[in-house]
């Protein structure tokens, strides 16, 4: 059983921040599908849980010119099934539909996933490769400035993600090799092609969390073809290694995923 805590359901973003500021050791909770299991195993014991998913400021999926704006409280299932996302960013919709399982997708949210920044989470790769903007209760943060290592982000204490703004690329693809038991990514690559650049972001593999593979970006920028990746390799020194996949295997998988993501733009590829 979890340690005790006080649960709050604020009515507005301002009230949420106010409760946070006055509490002893608070944390925000969205879908709770990372936080509650962590609390059940007693690896976290916040004094106060402040619920965010019902807040009006965090809702909605809209298109604003050449951007798709997704409210932080949108569940993975709602992103996966949104026609607007399926049309403008099919790889992102299919990525969302590949997170966890059906029940998890009904509760977990995009904002929660990004605030947590699990090194094996799917969304960070899409946010980084697409050069998205994280909109918070106080400012806007570009993806390049947001991710700060495993489970770490640029968010200040008490800051709340309200939305994520994704620029619509010319095309994008996501390829993932899943752990057959946990279904978390052992390695995954999101490749986005815009008018003037290619961005490649790898999740699941890096020892410092999600990262851009700049050598691959350069090669694909010159020739957008998986053959352009021949001879490029990631260093095992920068990869995670565990009983499921050692570092050199993850480095290899990340490269294979990148090739597949290039070959299969416009969709998710599961290896």
């Amino acid at each position: 059983m979890m340690y005790g805590f006080s649960f709050h359901r604020p009515k507005s973003l301002a009230e949420a921040a106010d409760v946070f500021a006055r509490a002893d050791d608070p944390t925000y909770v969205s879908g709770g599908h990372s936080l509650l299991p962590t609390m059940k195993s007693r690896l976290a014991a916040p004094s106060d849980l402040i619920a965010l998913t019902h807040l009006p400021e965090l809702q909605g999926i809209t298109r604003d010119g050449d951007r798709v704006i997704i409210g932080a409280a949108q569940t993975h299932a709602s992103v996966a099934s949104a026609a607007l996302v399926q049309d403008a960013l099919p790889a992102l919709a299919q990525l969302a539909g590949s997170i966890g399982d059906m029940q998890v997708r009904h509760r977990g949210t995009i904002g929660g996933s990004l605030a947590n920044n699990d090194p094996a989470a799917d969304y960070p790769s899409a946010v980084l490769a697409l050069g998205a903007t994280i909109v918070t209760s106080t400012r806007e943060i570009h993806a390049d400035d947001y991710f700060d290592g495993m489970f770490a982000t640029a968010l200040e204490l008490g800051e709340i993600i309200t939305a994520i703004a994704f620029p619509i690329p010319k095309s994008a693809g996501y390829a993932k090799m899943r752990n057959p038991a946990s279904r978390y990514a052992l390695a995954a690559s999101f490749v986005a092609k815009t008018e003037d650049a290619v961005r490649v972001a790898i999740t699941g593999a890096g020892s410092d969390g999600v990262f851009r593979w700049s050598a691959a970006e350069k090669a694909l920028g010159a020739s957008f073809d998986s053959a352009a990746l021949a001879g490029l390799a990631l260093s095992a020194d920068d990869m995670l290694g565990d009983m499921h996949a050692d570092a050199s295997y993850r480095a290899h998988l990340a490269a294979i995923c990148t090739q597949r993501a290039v070959d299969n733009q416009g969709r998710l590829t599961l290896l």
């Binding site: 709770g32 509650l36 299991p37 998890v104 509760r107």
Partner: peptide, 10 residues
């Protein structure tokens, strides 16, 4: 209206 895992919902 949505299937959820009730061990992970308060």
């Amino acid at each position: 209206g949505q299937a959820v895992k009730s061990c992970t919902v308060l």
